[in-house]
Design a protein around this nucleic acid. Structure first.
Lengths: 338, 338
DNA sequence: TTGAAAGCGCTACCAG
DNA sequence: CTGGTAGCGCTTTCAA
């Protein structure tokens, strides 16, 4: 930069301003600077020096639970990520991916990340990465919870949503079952009964389960006998596998309503129902969550919310483009699966 | 760091070494340093200063054609990305996402990216971003092409693969059709005939098309009458849509073989075939590409290659962990779809 | 194994 | 609108 200044016959500061705040310098100065820069093949301020001096990196991190692979395989996480990417484009900021493996190294990665803030995909209650993030003193926003001091939270009211969708899905049902998102980081596939939602370590699972429990009771049914099938990942094939297990019982106990926690899982359930030759919604009703395009194509009754908007909002808050997290709008979409 | 040095009663360099190369200093010095650091709540070297001084960022970028959304929606791109992420974990390096929108701003983004190298997802021939990347003087590796001076290339021989899979898919066929990956950045959905592969602007599409053309001629058929359906994105639903169009012709011209350029597209074709009540492979044979798990579940004959390994290898080369790009192994997997 | 000096390239700050 | 100065926090280099 000093060389450019010399060549242009101006001060170093004029060069700096020409690149950083072009409108601050006169047109003639700017022209001289850019001409000299071109001449010397100077491509612009050095990023590292800029960061050192300004204390900013112009990057944000998006932190994903577990392997990045899960994040990419999950359609809902992808929508969220797209929203984050959009905000980064708005702000001309870089987007760093930060895996949150659940191992000790995560804390170091967070501390050392060359970023100005963190957008976090929902993780388990008491994840130590949240304290690590707060410890950096940088802004952070988490989607879906858990609520954590010093971290903004974006997401819908999952309990209320679950109560509302259950009211639709359970109309006339006698033997509902639930297909649940993963329970904890172990990601075991299992069928449980008499479930205490409070034991689920992922906040989204816990809250939707709480709502489903309430919904079941509101429908005058017994929660203790409701089977809850927990999947390992939020994928259609997992939903189908679990639905097959849940439906593989004597006729007298055959489920007549499936409350899934996501559209992917619900779509899998629809696959299983089709395979088994059952009638939808007469033999069994199905509800999902998120209102993806595939869900609307399939006529799935679901909870509508925009993960893209949440990703965008979360990132904009972290980037300082938005002042605060906006409340998330949601609604129940009734379709032919109920 | 100076404060820590003072508190520990050692030189600044001993502090620096304690963090950067712990084995270089004596145990006692290290202990003193870490104790002082803890006391002063010093969390470790400042990233920006480290980068300024060392000239390294300890980050690599992965550059995706067009919107990031496409990258995330594409199952194959995702596998590749997972491989890149794995390598970053090996190297303890950060992973930055860099969108390549095809607009002028891309060049600036590349130039300003705080990274040590670039892993590039396949893009169009003559994409100006490639020159921009070379212009940074940083290492780069592209998957799938185009071949570009100064950029390493990882990927299989698509022409040979296409010839080989076509030989299987076209056995006994009279009226083959092709379902092609996007043609260019316009991403128009269209059905073409008498196609000149050389006109395709995505190298992967061009090369596979070249191989399919050869395969068709090898089978003693006329290429000029082969319909090539080009999709907008590599998604199952797009494959199904295109297959329906291609199959929606009078019986006498009904396709009896579908050469798809990806498993996703091929799986979509299988969906369409099932809907239409056609017999697989008797009425129509289908081949795909990549050998995803969904493809093997569906009994799809396909070209097997590992995008994960390619992503990992590409990133390791860029990170300097591997010396050179390894040749990609591939094979034809024969299953029940042919 | 430890240390001193120099300076990476830039921008905040203040002055004109 | 332009410019001078100082110093961000570290590591490279060289020396002991």
């Amino acid at each position: 930069m000093a060389d450019v200044a010399k060549a242009a016959g101006v001060s170093v500061m004029s060069v700096s301003y020409s690149f950083a705040q072009p409108e601050r310098v006169s047109e003639s100065t700017r022209a001289k600077v850019f001409a000299a820069a071109e001449e010397l093949e100077y491509a612009g301020p050095n990023r590292a020096a800029q960061s050192l001096r300004s204390g900013k990196f112009n990057n944000i991190a998006v932190v994903f639970s577990e392997k990045l692979t899960y994040a990419f395989e999950d359609a809902v996480a992808r929508r969220f990520l797209s929203g984050v990417a959009e905000a980064c484009l708005d702000a001309n900021a870089g987007l760093m991916m930060l895996p949150n493996s659940g191992k000790p190294g995560d804390v170091d990665r967070v501390r050392d990340a060359a970023v100005d803030g963190f957008v976090v995909w929902t993780t388990v209650f008491d994840d130590p990465i949240l304290d690590a993030i707060v410890g950096t003193g940088k802004p952070a926003c988490i989607q879906g919870g858990p609520l954590h001091e010093g971290v903004d939270l974006v997401g819908m009211d999952d309990v209320a949503g679950a109560v509302a969708i259950a009211a639709v899905g359970l109309s006339g049902a006698q033997r509902p079952v639930v297909i649940s998102l993963p329970w904890d980081r172990e990601r075991r596939s299992e069928i449980r009964m008499d479930v205490d939602p409070g034991e689920a370590l992922f906040p989204v699972s816990r809250h939707r389960l709480e709502g489903y429990e309430r919904g079941v009771r509101n429908a005058g049914l017994e929660w203790s006998s409701v089977r809850v099938g927990v999947v390992t990942v939020n994928e259609r094939s997992e939903g189908a596998r679990m639905a097959r297990s849940l439906l593989d019982v004597p006729v007298s106990r055959k489920p007549d309503a499936i409350l899934a926690m996501s559209d992917e899982l619900a779509l899998g359930a629809l696959d299983a129902i089709r395979e088994l030759g059952l009638a939808l919604p007469d033999d069994v009703a199905v509800v999902g969550w998120d209102d993806t395009t595939a869900a609307s194509d399939a006529g799935l009754t679901t909870v509508r919310q925009s993960l893209f908007d949440q990703g965008r909002n979360a990132a904009r808050v972290v980037l300082g483009l938005d002042d605060a997290v906006e409340p998330v709008e949601w609604s129940v979409r009734r379709r032919t699966s109920t």
